[in-house]
Measured scan of single mutants.
Amino acid sequence: WVPTKREEKYGVAFYNYDARGADELSLQIGDTVHILETYEGWYRGYTLRKKSKKGIFPASYIHLKE
C-alpha cells in the first residue's frame, strides 16, 4: 500500500459496491470517500458519512475530485 500523494484526496462513488470481506468498504452511489492509500487498482479509506469504518474498495468505482 502506498500513501496518497496529496494530503486531502477525495472521490465520489459512481457505482454501488458491496463489501465481500471484513477488510472491504461498502459504497453507495454518491458517497464521498477520503482516500488514504492506493494499491494495484484499489483504494483504502473511509466514507464521510461513516468515518469510523475504514476499508478497501475498487478504484474503478470512484471519480476523483480535483
Rank of each mutant, 00 (worst) to 15 (best):
W1R: 07
W1F: 08
W1G: 08
W1D: 07
W1K: 08
W1N: 07
V2L: 10
V2H: 11
P3T: 08
P3N: 06
T4Q: 10
T4H: 09
T4I: 10
T4C: 15
T4V: 14
K5A: 12
K5G: 14
K5D: 14
R6E: 12
R6D: 13
R6T: 11
E7G: 15
E7M: 11
E7K: 11
E7R: 11
E7T: 13
E8T: 09
K9W: 12
K9F: 09
K9T: 10
K9D: 04
G11T: 03
G11D: 02
V12T: 08
V12H: 05
V12N: 02
A13H: 02
A13I: 04
F14P: 00
F14Q: 13
F14N: 08
F14T: 13
F14D: 06
Y15M: 15
Y15W: 14
Y15R: 15
Y15L: 15
N16R: 12
N16H: 09
Y17C: 06
Y17S: 00
Y17R: 00
Y17W: 08
Y17D: 00
D18M: 12
D18N: 12
D18E: 14
A19T: 03
A19I: 03
A19C: 06
A19Y: 01
A19S: 06
A19F: 01
R20Q: 12
R20Y: 05
G21R: 09
G21Q: 09
G21M: 08
G21I: 05
A22E: 13
A22Y: 08
A22K: 11
A22M: 09
D23S: 08
D23Q: 09
E24V: 03
E24F: 06
L25A: 01
L25Y: 01
S26W: 05
S26I: 04
S26P: 04
L27P: 00
L27G: 01
L27R: 00
Q28H: 11
Q28R: 15
I29W: 05
I29L: 06
I29S: 06
I29C: 10
G30V: 04
G30F: 04
G30C: 09
D31T: 04
D31C: 07
D31Q: 04
T32H: 13
V33W: 02
V33D: 00
V33H: 01
V33M: 03
V33S: 00
V33L: 05
H34A: 13
I35E: 01
I35S: 01
I35R: 00
I35G: 02
I35V: 05
L36E: 08
E37L: 06
E37H: 07
E37R: 04
E37V: 05
E37W: 06
T38I: 12
T38G: 06
T38H: 10
T38M: 12
Y39H: 09
Y39A: 10
Y39Q: 10
E40M: 13
E40Q: 13
E40I: 07
G41F: 05
G41T: 06
G41Q: 06
W42R: 00
W42F: 04
Y43G: 01
Y43P: 00
Y43I: 05
Y43E: 00
R44I: 06
R44Y: 15
R44H: 06
R44G: 04
R44A: 04
R44T: 04
R44Q: 04
G45W: 06
Y46W: 06
Y46K: 03
Y46T: 04
Y46L: 03
T47N: 15
T47Y: 04
T47G: 01
R49I: 07
R49V: 09
R49Q: 11
R49W: 11
K50G: 09
K50V: 12
K50C: 15
K51R: 11
K51C: 15
K51P: 15
K51M: 09
K51H: 09
K51N: 09
K51Q: 10
K51L: 08
S52L: 08
S52P: 06
S52V: 07
K53I: 11
K54I: 15
K54T: 14
K54H: 12
K54Q: 11
K54D: 05
I56Y: 09
I56P: 03
F57W: 03
F57K: 02
F57N: 02
F57E: 00
P58N: 02
P58E: 02
P58A: 05
A59F: 03
A59K: 14
S60K: 15
S60M: 14
S60A: 14
S60G: 08
Y61F: 09
Y61R: 05
Y61D: 01
I62L: 02
I62W: 02
I62E: 01
I62F: 01
H63Q: 13
H63V: 14
L64P: 04
L64W: 04
K65F: 15
K65N: 11
K65G: 08
E66T: 14
E66M: 13
E66L: 12
E66P: 14
E66W: 12
